[in-house]
Design a protein around this nucleic acid. Structure first.
Lengths: 110, 110
DNA sequence: CATAAACACATTGCATAACTATGTATTTTA
DNA sequence: TAAAATACATAGTTATGCAATGTGTTTATG
């Protein structure tokens, strides 16, 4: 029923949500980009395209919410690991407040 | 803490969410635009600018999720009332599934 | 009584972010 | 030896929230 609208809508809902999810996953563990995609898929069944994740992580880095470091591998391509900063943790906390308020509001009307 | 990022982020989260909220509010009651803004504010504390709501309702109408009818007032400007269509109800139901799945996923990682 | 605020509709232009497509390069599997 | 998986990245398209602006009516207020 209105498959096209639903498809577009789901993509719109991901705006902002993906940043929130990525920060949450990085909260208690550091991951490199490709691994983050897998972790998010495993934990939330949400599939993030690489073309979505890498620009997202660059934005989060630019905003000072995460830092990154290159880690050379004994074999293969070096991996870029992301860690939450203090600002990142504080910001995530505020994001959680907003998110759970929104949840409650939506439960109230649905 | 990163007030600017938070501001932008909240605006991004609203993308898609506002359509979901508007449809939910229209589920058991028909409202006109200006009234919808008030109802949403009252029930969710979320403030939608008029420049956000009117284009949103036009999109929902174009997608066939709502219909609208002008109602003349004995005094004052005529009001445009919105009603959910059958397609709108069915689509809202699918949106709810996606939303509550997303909620659960985020609870799992936060 | 005049003026501001609230009511009620609408559009334009900007900023942001997800997604598709594409690209590079290495390693593993079939 | 070719394909798939790993691992990074960017460019262009598309959708939507929001500020600014516009029109016109009704109600409150000083």
């Amino acid at each position: 029923m209105n498959e096209n609208f639903l498809h577009k809508w789901k993509s719109q809902v991901k705006k902002g949500t993906l940043a929130f999810i990525a920060l949450n996953v990085l909260k208690d563990h550091e991951y490199y980009g490709y691994e983050l995609i897998e972790q998010i898929k495993k934990n939330t069944r949400i599939e993030i395209a690489e073309g979505t994740l890498y620009p997202l992580m660059n934005r989060l880095k630019k905003e000072g919410l995460v830092t990154s470091k290159w880690v050379e591998q004994t074999s293969g391509i070096p991996r870029k690991y992301y860690t939450l900063t203090n600002t990142g943790e504080a910001t995530l906390s505020e994001m959680s407040n907003f998110w759970f308020d929104l949840e409650k509001s939506i439960k109230r009307i649905s």
